[in-house]
Design a protein around this nucleic acid. Structure first.
Lengths: 222, 222
DNA sequence: GTCTGTGAAGCTCTTCACAGCG
DNA sequence: CGCTGTGAAGAGCTTCACAGAC
């Protein structure tokens, strides 16, 4: 379909900032949809999510122009369009490495399912955990990583293990086709070519807040 | 002290991207320090954390010029300097709202302590949890939020509760002086003036990865 | 009139490239 | 020589402001 090709072509030139905002727009649109809202204007939606109307319109049009008349944007069709752009119109299988406290919390997190992601396998190296069912998932031996990735068609791997051996895990997964990683391990990893690593660094976020606090109120004496 | 004033003055004009990278630099510098490394050149450290040498130098100099000679940057003193800039040279008290799976994982996470943050109170509204000790923290009634924030000198609040009532919690905390929030709740909150809200949106990160995968390998037919 | 889509301006962040120093 | 610090150029992102549609 030609509009699909066009979308794919445009996608290559789009800012990742825009992509991140699309997630936010989509979430708000789903809220609106549940409330029975059928159309929104850019200034309304923009105010709800905290961006400027111009930014919102620019973000949406960067993927092509999405039907909008004097009534604004159609909520239902925009949800579909954004889902298609983000690639979440179909379920995607996700793996998890490291079933510690954080891993367990992620396994229990129902927000992923709502967004089209399903954790289908959890791995660890701790013999005390392997074989046990944790938060509904059987904990597998990390040795089986490659086999399970291939068999379960895992495309994204969440990293929540110890820092040791992380690089090796990424390389092994990459070798069998995993190109995307969501990394909670606070360690800078030089990403292999073609791989995307998204870092979630909790301490760094707190440090940023700490900086902002300090900047807003410079200490009286220090 | 004059160099402190100068630092504070410069801090006001610094990009937040820079601040985020400072966290990364500091972490790597601490690793190097443990390995016994005393000096690093910008191109070495830059390669380790995945930025350009020019960027690294620019980031560091945006807070003033930090002793560097033909030997490079002194690891130990740079750790101290960066900690002071980020405001993590002293312990800061953090509160947590919502002791579900994620809240529990955050309570168990030891990475915060290492970076100068201490979770000193956990709140929930669930009567089944209130009064119990969870991951080493007694779970307090959310009703006590204001009192405990003041008594424990809490400056940062981590939000890991249900979306309902989130806005009210932020406003109540803000009213008693909390100006920084780390929000795991996937909901766009219009930040009150003077408040800083850092969003950590797990699903949005997965969606971004999903987009990147799709862009890298455009689907054959769809 | 109000709203979208968009060229153009404005602004911010990054990279280049070189002076100055050791 | 090689390294840092930095002015200047470049690239990218956001906002403005208006044409065109309704």
């Amino acid at each position: 379909m030609s509009s699909q090709e066009e979308t794919a072509a445009r996608a290559r030139r789009v800012s990742l900032h825009t992509v991140e905002r699309l997630s936010v727009y989509r979430r708000k649109l789903e809220e609106l949809s549940h409330e029975g809202v059928e159309f929104v204007h850019s200034h309304q939606l923009a105010a709800m999510v905290g961006v400027t109307p111009a930014q919102l319109r620019r973000d949406l049009t960067s993927f092509g122009t999405y039907g909008n008349i004097a009534r604004g944007y159609e909520v239902a069709s925009m949800i579909v369009t954004l889902s298609r752009i983000l690639g979440t119109d179909k379920f995607q299988n996700v793996g998890l490495v490291g079933v510690g406290d954080l891993g367990r919390a992620l396994l229990s997190y129902r927000g992923f399912e709502e967004r089209g992601f399903r954790i289908v396998a959890a791995f660890d190296i701790d013999p005390a955990k392997i074989g046990k069912v944790i938060a509904g998932q059987p904990c597998l031996d990390l040795e089986e990583l490659e086999r399970v990735i291939v068999e379960s068609d895992i495309r994204i791997l969440i990293l929540a293990s110890r820092p040791q051996g992380l690089k090796e895990i990424i390389e092994r997964a990459c070798a069998v086709g995993v190109r995307a990683f969501l990394n909670f391990v606070p360690k800078a990893i030089p990403a292999p070519p073609c791989c995307h690593i998204e870092q979630i660094d909790l301490s760094a976020k707190l440090e940023k807040l700490s900086f902002l606090l300090k900047r807003a109120a410079p200490p009286p004496d220090l």
